[in-house]
Design a protein around this nucleic acid. Structure first.
Lengths: 345, 345
DNA sequence: CTGTTAGCGCATTCAC
DNA sequence: GTGAATGCGCTAACAG
């Protein structure tokens, strides 16, 4: 394949390469007719300016990266959608990397991006709050970073999250209001920022409702479907919760499965609410009360902030947290049922 | 930001740039000690070879693109996961583009990729079988293409799909076997390849079961949630199906909603099965029988084929269809219920 | 309005 | 085992 390049095109037209170049960028002045002639010929010969040559010259890549820990639930697909849309709007390309919750992988991705491949990074953190030296690389290279949903607290960067504390408080309160006294909290990892924040909301709500905390009611799970199920089973065998607040969608799904198997009726025997952005929560069995996270908006907002930084030639984003409101959508799974006075609905 | 480059690093070490270069590629011979010294200093100074310079020199980008029509359901997130994983395995980067079902957008993306940005493309087609001239660009540039799930029949490229015809036939047969006589088919667009193939399976199964086809039972929907609902409502008002086969997940969700509102019991009054790769079909109300598509595998396989082509320096993939088997997972939504003889389960 | 010139950062000859 | 020279394809200054 004799690749066409600017020189050949110039030769074919009897022009200089700079004129060709001019025809392809909109700023420099050029005779409209020449331009048209060039573009026509370019089209015919299948010429388009080589990306890497241009990028090398201007050290601009018009590309950002998304780094996410996993793809397991709707949250990230919707967030990606938001980011990609913003990128498109700004004329940027979007690279995507999935770490599978592996900080090493995350570091490796970051390293592979620091050679000019991207101008900015939007990411949701994979690890806990320990060694983030790989992120210093970004700063050294002047590549701005924006977190969404999960962040490293010690890294200087803007972080777009939901109002996790408030939502958790409210979700717990919602269970209390509907009659729950022994509320369990299901979490994947209670030591990372987001699990911690959500748990605090839960704890404070319990305290404010004068409910005593039973440590057995806090269940730390993994991401493995079977193990989650077992953890829930143990919870119910050991202690008898009457309400469950799941900090992650996947854990609530396991709850639904367990309740079917254990012949527990939701919401009669146990009430359930969880963080989720599942669009089909209303057709679950039973329709599931959710703390609805604005995933798309979170992604879009994070990207927006990144592009602002890029636009202003900032090499770093301001350390601040931007909270988008989640909303509690009560459905059957937390409905109050009254037996004692025959007014059962 | 005084960016570090190969020259500065060379100067700092009193070496030539070519020696530096050698230290970073593993083939050329270089004194191990020099190499180590270089790498150490590079690390210290935060140097890594500029991507665009290397790419320009070698005309290699180590990047592929994914182009998908939408992000609306699990299918595409799982497929992306499969593709990304393969890419990572092969040391490639992955660009992602979402067309929102717009062929113009698709064409525009393709054009923006043909300047060397990517070495290959994995895509699920956005449009119908009409004008695909934008794909010729890829061929002209020698960029191989692999379709997954949705393809353009007239384009020469490998296409990885499910066994849609067979699965549809079986799904329909499954409804028949469980007592349905008037089976509706819900489809988004019956004229694109995939809608067509699936419908053919449905039609043939009806014929082989000696059921007469009622055109009113074939419902063409859009992607809009409300409109889908209305279309289903019209279907039930006009005619009384006793089984529904939904060619797309989203349509089945609308069915579940409609049945709640219309107080129709699934599977008593109506049975339902659909294409889906929802992992939580078992906790829907009722647990939904599905034709389970191997989305992750489809993505992974498509990527694999692309990398094979890349590896063999093919500029085009063989025109062939590779079918991965879907499996029918019967759940409550299609269960046979027998009233007449008191053996109701 | 167009051509000439120089150089972005790197990797590969070819010498030594 | 290492250095000097060349060019990948493009664009921005500068001249005219």
């Amino acid at each position: 394949m004799s690749q066409i390049n600017i020189k050949k095109l110039a030769a074919a037209l009897g022009l200089s390469t700079s004129t060709i170049s001019r025809a392809f960028r909109n700023n420099s002045d050029i005779n409209p007719l020449t331009k048209e002639r060039i573009l026509r010929m370019a089209d015919e010969l299948g010429y388009s300016p080589n990306l890497y040559a241009s990028n090398l010259r201007d050290s601009k890549s018009k590309t950002i990266a998304i780094i996410i820990p996993e793809f397991g639930n709707n949250f990230f697909s919707q967030a990606i959608k938001g980011i990609e849309k913003q990128a498109r709007y700004n004329g940027y390309h979007t690279l995507i990397y999935v770490t599978e919750d592996d900080v090493e992988q995350e570091a490796s991705f970051i390293r592979s991006l620091c050679n000019g491949r991207v101008e900015g990074v939007v990411m949701s953190a994979s690890g806990e709050g320990l060694k983030h030296s790989h992120l210093n690389l970004l700063r050294e290279k002047g590549i701005p970073l924006v977190f969404f949903d999960r962040c490293y607290e010690d890294v200087e960067a803007t972080c777009v999250t939901g109002n996790d504390y408030d939502s958790s408080y409210e979700a717990t309160q919602h269970l209390v209001a509907n009659g729950c006294k022994r509320i369990a909290y299901l979490v994947v990892n209670k030591s990372i920022s987001i699990g911690k924040t959500r748990m605090q909301g839960y704890l404070d709500a319990l305290k404010d409702a004068d409910l005593t905390l039973d440590d057995n009611l806090i269940v730390e799970c993994t991401n493995d479907r079977d193990e989650i199920y077992k953890a829930i089973k143990r919870l119910f065998e050991k202690t008898k919760p009457d309400g469950v607040f799941a900090s992650v969608e996947r854990l609530a799904m396991a709850m639904l499965r367990y309740c079917v198997d254990a012949k527990l009726d939701i919401p009669m025997d146990i009430k359930l609410i969880c963080f989720s952005c599942l669009e089909i929560a209303d057709v679950l069995n039973p329709p599931l009360s959710t703390v609805n996270q604005p995933a798309f908006e979170m992604g879009a907002r994070a990207a927006e902030i990144l592009f602002e930084a890029l636009h202003n030639k900032q090499t770093i984003t301001k350390k601040q947290q931007i909270q988008l409101s989640s909303s509690i959508i009560p459905r059957i799974s937390t409905e109050k049922r009254i037996f004692d006075d025959n007014t059962e609905t």
